[in-house]
């Protein structure tokens, strides 16, 4: 009697052990996959995703400049435009402003158009004046221009081709050498 029972129990245990092993292997495979997924990810700070606006027609910019004139991006057709979103309170904007002013004055056939991001017009104007900037800057009181360009955090800069297409998005401060390079490449491609 008992030997028969033991036999059955033994068989059953053997089978259940097999089941557990199969499950453990399946879970293990999932674990390996999960670990590989995690191991191959880069930190968010090192990731960059291209703006969906690139190679699309630039959203229109219609507004009033800080000195009260009507400004339209469409009126810049036929030349490269660097659209720069900035604020007086943003530290990296302060870092890039010198380079930006230099670039705007270097006369490479590129116009710079500033767009005020979440700032008082007076502070923004003061900020530009402090760095001797002479280019136009548009007030964007409701943030709608920034929204149409997908700006999250100033400074953010867009290079727009003479035909009105967004060529590049630069997140964070710009610097002179890379701007020069960018323009050269854009021009050489006949954009």
């Amino acid at each position: 009697m008992s030997s028969h029972k033991d036999n059955e129990v033994h068989k059953s245990n053997k089978r259940s052990r097999k089941t557990i092993r199969i499950i453990a292997i399946v879970v293990g495979i999932c674990l390996v996959g999960f670990a590989i997924l995690l191991a191959t990810r880069k930190p968010v700070s090192m990731q960059s995703v291209a703006s969906p606006l690139i190679n699309r027609t630039a959203p229109q910019i219609l507004g009033t400049s800080l000195d009260g004139k009507k400004v339209s991006l469409a009126s810049y057709r036929g030349q490269f435009v660097l659209v720069n979103f900035f604020a007086s309170w943003c530290t990296p904007c302060q870092d890039e402003e010198k380079a930006l002013v230099q670039f705007a004055n270097s006369n490479q056939g590129v116009s710079v158009l500033g767009v005020v991001f979440d700032d008082l017009n007076s502070s923004a104007a003061g900020f530009l004046h402090r760095y001797g900037a002479t280019y136009q800057a548009v007030s964007d009181a409701k943030g709608q221009i920034a929204l149409s360009y997908g700006v999250s955090q100033p400074p953010q800069t867009y290079l727009i081709s003479p035909s009105g297409v967004v060529l590049t998005e630069i997140i964070g401060p710009v610097n002179l050498p890379s701007l020069d390079q960018l323009i050269t490449i854009a021009k050489s491609r006949g954009l």
Partner: peptide, 10 residues
């Protein structure tokens, strides 16, 4: 935040 205000008004 300012961005949220812009989104809301949009």
């Amino acid at each position: 935040t300012a961005g949220a205000f812009a989104v809301r008004s949009f």
